[in-house]
């Protein structure tokens, strides 16, 4: 699998990362390098080996269904660039 300039632009757009045009070509090189390196792993025979989902031998913790949080809109909003009447306020977005 090789990545071209169009893919880099698309991925950057999907991730909302602004990459100036002169960065695109170097990124193509870098990402292809990383991918090649990862593809080397495909040489290992993994037939019959369960995918490793975690390096720790732990089970997913579950919590009880009780309300322990919330009720503090001021704290939630304290970092918002703009808020009004308890709402976050952002530039207009319409689907």
């Amino acid at each position: 699998m090789a990545i071209d300039a169009a893919t880099v632009r698309k991925v950057a757009r999907l991730a909302r990362i602004a990459e100036p045009e002169e960065r695109i070509e170097p990124l193509v090189q870098e990402l292809n390098g990383i991918l090649q390196w990862i593809e080397q792993l495909a040489e290992v025979d993994t037939d019959g080996v369960e995918p490793l989902t975690s390096v720790v031998h732990a089970t997913l913790p579950l919590r009880d269904d009780v309300v322990t949080d919330g009720g503090d809109a001021a704290r939630v909003l304290s970092n918002a660039p703009k808020s009004t009447d308890g709402f976050y306020v952002v530039p207009k977005v319409v689907e």
Binding site: V76, K82, G86, Y88, V89, V90, P91, K92, V93, V94
Partner: peptide, 13 residues
């Protein structure tokens, strides 16, 4: 919420 302001969107989480 899109109708509380003509230029802004209000968000309730």
């Amino acid at each position: 919420i899109h109708d509380l302001s003509p230029t802004e969107t209000y968000v309730d989480l």
